Simulated assay, not measured.
Amino acid sequence: MLDISVIVPLYNEEESLPELATWISKVMDEHKFSYEVIFVNDGSRDKSWNVIRQISLNNPNFKGISFSRNYGKSAALHTGFKAAEGRVVITMDADLQDSPDEIPELYRMITEEDFDLVSGWKQKRFDPISKTIPTKLYNAVTRSISGVYLHDFNCGLKAYKKEVIKTIRLYGEMHRYIPVQANWNGFSKIGEKVVNHQARKYGTTKFGLERFLYGFLDLLSITFIQKFGKRPMHFFGTMGILAILAGGFSAFWILGEKWWDIAHNLKYRNATDHPFFYLALTSVIIGTQLFLAGFLGELLTTNSDRTTDYQIKETTGEIKEI
């Protein structure tokens, strides 16, 4: 088994790839690691794929996977994880802001300190304030909701045991929540390492502020899926019971008022004239619908893999499994 698999998702990074490949090779050779580097080209429109093919020809340790179109970072990482064969899997960005010099220490923390996952922490960042402040808020919210206490969930530089990444399913913008998924999958020994963050040397960032909104929505999604994905009736059934109880309470309230008025020879209103009547009716209808949603959810828990079907256009190097 290889010591290390390095997964590098990328989109329009032709200028940085040769320098990154040379840097990774230098680190691996100095420490005598057996390794593979898998570049996952996420539908780049520049010459990134041509550069990857040339790198792969010059060094068989480098491999490439190219999507037919842009799917996003989560898709690239998911596909890279499926292809990885190393004992330790390390992810890093292709823009040279993540330093390959961190690889030996990350490898040591996984193999010697027996961490399931080690996440990088860019304690000192070379990003504009428009990016750093939303990132801090995003990290605080993620820590609060997930219960996983990391400073920098969005750092692309992470290391994993192979068995961890084989349990992870990524789509949408879920790549930010790999530590959360790993923790919920039982891999709870999660470490953190302060890593060097370097200023971008080539090109511009491929992410806008909308990623924080999408990221928050995905956090809510993954929290729901992890808690109720295998038992949707627990969620929808509970909500349905509460809605039906609210309707039942309103109905008994109306009946109670009517009986009181009759017992005391008072003039009473028809049930349909009472505002609680419509509350009761609406609550019962909603409760019934929630129960039906729960039953349908139970039928759909056959765990279709279609959410992680990504069309691959081409590969280079020896990719044994995707």
Score class of each variant (00 low, 15 high):
12 N>E: 14
107 Y>R: 06
81 F>N: 04
4 I>S: 03
6 V>H: 02
84 A>K: 12
25 S>H: 02
226 Q>I: 12
116 D>H: 14
130 S>L: 11
85 E>I: 09
122 K>Q: 10
91 T>M: 07
130 S>D: 08
227 K>I: 07
83 A>S: 15
254 I>S: 01
68 S>P: 01
288 T>H: 00
15 E>Q: 12
22 T>I: 01
197 H>V: 02
259 W>G: 01
218 D>C: 09
170 L>A: 14
205 T>I: 11
319 I>A: 10
318 E>H: 15
11 Y>D: 01
43 G>N: 10
140 A>Q: 11
163 E>G: 10
22 T>D: 11
173 E>S: 15
28 M>D: 09
182 A>T: 06
251 A>T: 03
77 L>W: 02
211 R>V: 14
93 D>Y: 02
101 D>S: 13
46 D>V: 07
237 G>L: 07
281 L>P: 00
141 V>F: 06
168 I>E: 06
2 L>E: 14
213 L>Y: 13
103 I>H: 04
194 V>D: 09
224 F>P: 01
143 R>F: 00
247 G>S: 05
103 I>K: 01
30 E>G: 07
125 R>Y: 07
315 T>Y: 00
225 I>C: 05
174 M>A: 14
105 E>L: 04
158 K>W: 04
239 M>Y: 00
248 G>A: 03
259 W>E: 15
18 P>F: 03
149 Y>F: 08
8 V>Q: 07
185 N>F: 10
264 H>Y: 06
76 A>W: 01
303 N>P: 04
174 M>K: 13
65 I>E: 08
315 T>G: 03
124 K>H: 12
9 P>K: 08
175 H>L: 08
47 K>P: 00
141 V>S: 02
175 H>K: 11
174 M>S: 14
271 A>C: 00
210 E>R: 15
8 V>A: 08
202 Y>F: 15
3 D>R: 04
285 I>F: 00
209 L>K: 13
243 A>M: 06
308 T>L: 09
190 I>S: 06
260 W>G: 01
256 G>Y: 13
246 A>D: 02
58 N>Y: 12
123 Q>F: 10
205 T>H: 14
300 L>S: 01
113 E>Y: 03
54 Q>E: 15
155 C>Q: 07
258 K>W: 06
167 T>N: 15
284 V>N: 00
52 I>L: 05
92 M>E: 04
10 L>V: 10
125 R>G: 06
86 G>C: 08
45 R>G: 13
16 S>I: 06
185 N>H: 15
235 F>A: 05
259 W>S: 11
96 L>K: 01
276 F>T: 02
153 F>M: 09
45 R>S: 15
308 T>M: 15
1 M>N: 14
249 F>D: 05
87 R>F: 06
4 I>C: 03
279 L>C: 02
119 S>T: 10
141 V>H: 00
12 N>S: 04
160 Y>W: 01
317 G>L: 12
185 N>R: 12
